[in-house]
Design a protein around this nucleic acid. Structure first.
Lengths: 349, 349
DNA sequence: AAATATCATGCAAACGTTTGCATGATATTG
DNA sequence: CAATATCATGCAAACGTTTGCATGATATTT
């Protein structure tokens, strides 16, 4: 067919190193080295090569290069969802560090599905990524799929939701201590009955926050009052409202609430406000994570800044460090990012 | 040195197709085809190969494969910032579609820097990505760097902030019409003096929203009152408050405000509330973009759902369609995603 | 001036897969 | 039963770059 032949014929071939070499009557190796600014190549040649490359619109085929060098300069990132602010901040940090180190970042969403998480690790086994940064999905209870990557010598770094009982690189915040400090802050401003709206206790970080809450109470000789403690399924805004409704009707009413995230805290603020309970005078509220909304809600919400961006930076730095390590990696690292309690109006007495 | 030699020696080589072939006394080509489930290979052989591959922990070197097939199954995405909710939603949509189509997504942040945007396009010229999805940074005023990619036959799809005057694939929402409808909605519920807090007018989408606002007023024989119109630099929460302060003191006060995004709208709600102006009774407020906060702020904010996730899906679909097109691409497409006005309490009379 | 060091470039193999074509063995047809 | 179709597998080249080593030409040292 005429048209087919024509369209095929028109498929212009990309310019390669060899084309450039022929054009300049040099060896391909010389071109390659010239483009690498190799010291063994004369300045004049380098200039000629650069000029010609520009002229012919030549750019290196990075796949061929990756193939030969066995380096892709790509790292993979698996997150439950990208559109959760915390994760998008972490990814932003990862991308920032990776970009400056010359690495590309390929992202995958597990959508909290274990099956999909496994599928993704299969894809990542193909040496496409030189290392992987992971935040576990909620369904993940075994780590065999990651162990496998590990055995294939693919460096791994986990962040936030990290595997318990598996030796691995981890970037975490000190959830226990952060919660401890947040609760202690409530005690210090004079709260006597401090409630907790917590996350799913099968997730390590939420359990640690609850433990921190309890430890602070205990330290100051406060009783642990079960009637003041509620655990949500997924720390949603709606669940927060549900439990806040219960808290507001208690007699005596709690005068402080430590919530495991900002959504539930904001929800609590609104529920208490609707019942005309003054914040922070009658009840002080503290959240966790420093979501954008915490600076917008009235009163502004006291919360724990978990430094998500810095977690991303740290994760990328650790991972790339291990990728570029010549010797075999024989150690794992656990890095704890320092949090800070941002005291705002919701707990300023 | 002993240790060096040892560690070098220990660097276990990856299993290749050829290793597998030797082990099974088959040709490499047979292995390759077996793994591809090629019809020309007998079931028994396929089973043997699969079994052995599993046994030896073989996985294809996808770089070698990409290199040979000249297909990377990777698309690039350039966004100003990942941690802006709108973009993270779009990326989520892109990843979702791409994943199901067997493509990987590599992300880059331009951070609204033209220089960085150009750098990224340079990186993307290396045939690493088979196509690119882009949201322009604020600094971007020329498109030469993208034209260059275009000339190299790399399919491009722009979304949201798209290049004006450049023929290209674009995924947009109808900003004009959305703003028109939002404003008309305010008119329909009885607002007589409708204000506008707009975005930077050098950005197409914000200009279009302003035009839509004006058109709705004009259609209903309302005057365009300059004193009711403010343009922000970047539609920040803070800027919104600044201009809302001015609006609330006007006599007569506006009884409706159409804001070009939700941050400024939320800010306006709070400023009006502080001055004890009742919403929606005395002033109705409408935002744009359906940020999470719009469902949380009291009263809940009426806003335009821009369907960011769907934009991502559409962008990926269009791009991958073009990547897989055999014939030369001789057309560009502009897809307009339908928005919807979500009427909530802030404008419910 | 011979011996040696330095410099600029070229040669050729290698990386691991894919794929068109060839091959030989069975199965099917007239 | 000869001719042909179908099937399962193998051969070998190719993809574009990188890199250790070789080479020949100058420059520098004895």
């Amino acid at each position: 067919m005429q048209t087919f032949a024509t369209s095929n014929f028109m498929k212009k071939k990309r310019i390669t190193l060899v084309d450039l070499a022929k054009e300049l009557e040099l060896a391909a190796s010389t071109i390659s080295r010239a483009l690498d600014n190799h010291p063994g190549i004369s300045i004049e040649t380098k200039e000629k090569v650069l000029k010609k490359a520009e002229e012919l619109g030549f750019t290196r085929n990075s796949i061929a290069s990756s193939f030969k060098k066995n380096k892709t300069l790509t790292i993979g990132v698996i997150v439950p969802r990208i559109d959760i602010h915390f994760h998008s901040l972490v990814i932003s940090g990862i991308e920032e560090f990776a970009y400056k180190a010359g690495y590309n970042v390929t992202i995958f969403q597990s959508r909290d599905s274990l099956e999909r998480e496994k599928e993704i690790t299969k894809i990542l086994q193909n040496k496409m990524s030189e290392g992987v940064i992971i935040c576990l999905g909620t369904e993940t209870n075994s780590y065999e799929h990651f162990e496998k990557l590990n055995r294939m010598k693919v460096p791994l770094v986990f962040y936030d939701r990290v595997p318990t009982g598996m030796e691995a690189n981890k970037i975490v915040i000190n959830d226990f201590e952060s919660a401890f400090k947040a609760t202690e802050h409530l005690i210090e401003i004079g709260c006597k009955r401090i409630s907790h709206i917590g996350g799913n206790q099968s997730t390590g970080i939420f359990k640690a926050r609850f433990e921190g809450y309890k430890a602070a109470l205990t330290k100051h000789d406060f009783p642990i009052d079960e009637s003041l403690i509620y655990f949500t399924k997924d720390l949603s805004y709606e669940e927060g409202a549900l439990f806040a409704e219960k808290l507001v009707d208690l007699v005596p009413r709690p005068d402080g609430v430590f919530c495991s995230n900002d959504y539930t805290a904001v929800s609590a603020i609104q529920v208490f406000q609707k019942k005309l309970v003054k914040i922070p005078e009658e009840v002080a509220i503290v959240g966790f994570s420093n979501y954008p909304i915490s600076k917008i809600i009235e009163p502004h919400l006291t919360t724990v800044n978990d430094r998500a961006f810095e977690m991303g930076l740290a994760a990328a730095k650790l991972l790339i460090g291990q990728i570029e390590e010549e010797e075999e990696i024989i150690q794992t690292e656990i890095i704890t990012i320092k949090t800070e309690l941002l005291i705002r109006e919701s707990s300023s007495r």
